[in-house]
Design a protein around this nucleic acid. Structure first.
Lengths: 146, 146
DNA sequence: TGGAAGAATGCAAAAGCATCTCATTTGTTG
DNA sequence: CAACAAATGAGATGCTTTTGCATTCTTCCA
């Protein structure tokens, strides 16, 4: 199963009502190629610097926020500091984060989704969003040791 | 079903290896009587001021952090700014938050808990903690309207 | 019960993250 | 390719949380 699409481009930026500028194109491209898929604004800043693109941190925050509004990326507030962003490929999922190395994996579980709806209903809430994050130690040898 | 206990006291502070000081006693008492149960550091500060106790914000943060380490309170990072704290009565639960009025309700669902363990297991993770928060509009009339 | 020793507090300064301001630069459109 | 609106960069700013340090309070034992 695939999501909305596999490749984003300048069209996505344009469709969001934004001008197609170098910073926006670079940031979008970076999110696309990003190994871990979950990066902080500062990660983006540094990665772009490494790639020879000196784009201001303010611009990165601005662009990521705009992308978020446009539905191109999703912002997560994991524990411990900065927000992390990931490309929104149209498939909702939750996260499991290693508290040792920071690795982030995704998962989706229909049963959990359904239960949440039922719980909200019981309490008279209309669900707009939810955030489920499991924190633990990943299978990495260095992380397993307490 | 009741949790660990219903009343906290100076003994809890002492047992945590902390001296029993007026700020700590007042903060603990406030958390106990708190209506909503979920308060930010600043809420604590203001509520104590209203009660005639002028305790520095820095102290509040320090004490809440110490209480957290001692397992007396739990800190949550809901979206939108400040962390909120609640007394830890020993019963784990998740939250459903109204994005309009800020109301926080608690829930616990064994099915969701179990699924999380299974998911973590599948991915080779050892669960240390998890945070599930549902965001939506509560049943309050003022919140229902978009 | 008095008083020394160490811990806790208050204040102000600092740190961390994110956003905003504003002068300058860059897309876009005709 | 000119003109306008939008976007960028650099630094200032705001907010929450933490920290350093001098002073004050708890604790505990003589």
């Amino acid at each position: 199963m695939r999501g909305k699409k596999d490749m984003m481009s300048g069209d996505d930026i344009r469709n969001a009502g934004l001008k197609v500028t170098l910073p926006r194109v670079k940031i979008l491209a970076l999110l696309e190629q990003s190994e871990q898929g979950h990066v902080s604004a500062e990660d983006v800043y540094k990665l772009l610097l490494d790639a020879g693109e000196d784009i201001g941190l303010a611009t990165i925050y601005r662009v990521l926020t705009q992308f978020e509004s446009a539905g191109l990326v999703t912002r997560h507030h994991f524990e411990g500091g900065q927000s992390v962003f990931e490309l929104d490929r149209g498939e909702h999922h939750d996260h499991i984060v290693c508290i040792k190395c920071g690795r982030v994996e995704e998962f989706f579980d229909q049963m959990i989704e359904d239960r949440q709806q039922e719980i909200a209903k019981e309490k008279g809430f209309t669900v707009e969003a939810h955030a489920l994050t499991i924190y633990g130690y990943c299978k990495n040898a260095a992380c397993r040791a307490s």
